[in-house]
């Protein structure tokens, strides 16, 4: 975590003069995209002894300059933008860590494979650190839909692996009603997969056996429906299903091979 924090601080420091050199920063400036949604939703947690992640308030904070941009935690520098594609270098925080912040300590008398234990023991799924990843993202779009391709590598020394990601979405609008299905997949390298979903010999014990995860491919499907009430207010419903790769799903600390998320709420867009 110390490394990750250091990287975050470095990125923030490096970004500062660049942001200052870009267009004026004002809440009403079109460079900003500021929004908030209030509602209710849940993202399921595939880990054993874990709680689902509730979603009540969602903040959308983004700033897009000619080259630099900040999009809800992702910091980017665009180096190509033409009629065909937009390509950027992006620094981000890996999202797999989010599940490990919602685990619980319990006293158990069965191991994670369901076998009885000789005595009741205390068990908590192992913790994992955030990773700062640096990568390249390419966006293309047109009447045929939108395609997002990216490749990210850990630069914080947390997992040492990489991820390749692809997502295709197609938006359909009928005045106030907007529907957008999307589909995608992500290849997670053995190092990345093993860091988050493996169990090291040090972590293994009576409850969890040690496990080494190889590389694998996750796939996801997403469906969004939005209805614009007026210029600023909209009602939104989003649901997303992500199937974990077999290597992650087979881990003793994983009890579900998928992540299901949904959110329904009222959203407000500032500055429109």
């Amino acid at each position: 975590m110390t490394r990750a924090t250091t990287w975050l601080a470095m990125l923030a420091f490096l970004a500062q003069p660049c942001l200052a050199a870009e267009a004026p920063v004002e809440a009403t400036n079109s460079n900003w995209r500021l929004g908030a949604a209030l509602g209710y939703g849940i993202r399921s947690n595939p880990l054993v002894q874990s709680d689902d992640i509730p979603i009540v308030v969602d903040l959308d904070i983004a700033w897009f300059g000619e080259r630099w941009f900040f999009d809800n935690g992702d910091l980017g520098l665009t180096f190509a933008d033409n009629d065909t594609l937009t390509a950027s270098v992006i620094a981000r925080v890996n999202s797999d860590r989010v599940f490990f912040g919602k685990t619980e300590t319990r006293y158990v008398n069965l191991d994670l494979a369901g076998g009885p234990l000789a005595e009741t023991v205390e068990f908590k799924p192992p913790d994992r650190d955030y990773a700062i990843e640096l990568g390249v993202e390419t966006l293309a779009g047109g009447r045929w839909g939108a395609l997002q391709l990216s490749a990210f590598h850990d630069v914080s020394g947390t997992h040492g692996g990489y991820e390749l990601y692809a997502n295709y979405s197609f938006g359909w609008r009928r005045q106030r009603l907007y529907i957008e299905p999307s589909l995608g997949l992500s290849y997670k390298s053995a190092d990345l997969n093993d860091y988050y979903w493996g169990v090291t010999p040090d972590e293994a014990g009576l409850v969890a056996f040690d496990y080494e995860a190889d590389a694998g491919i996750n796939w996801h499907a997403r469906f969004m429906v939005g209805y614009q009430l007026d210029k600023r207010w909209a009602v939104s419903l989003v649901t997303e299903y992500e199937r974990l790769n077999d290597e992650a799903a087979a881990s003793p600390i994983v009890e579900s091979d998928s992540v299901l998320g949904w959110f329904a709420g009222l959203s407000y867009r500032f500055g429109r």
Binding site: R33, A37, G41, R43, I55, D58, D60, A62, F64, F69, D71, N72, G73, D74, G76, T78, D81, L85, T86, S88, S95, E137, L139, A140, G141, A146, Q148, Y165, N167, S169, G171, Y178, E180, S182, R222, M224, G226, A234, S236, V238, T239, E240, G261, W262, F263, G265, S267
Partner: peptide, 18 residues
């Protein structure tokens, strides 16, 4: 929508709404 494709990028959060 916007001519800036970056405004349509997905950040992989399920609560990432349009």
């Amino acid at each position: 929508d916007s001519d800036d494709r970056r405004r349509k990028r997905r950040t992989r959060h399920v609560w990432d709404i349009n």
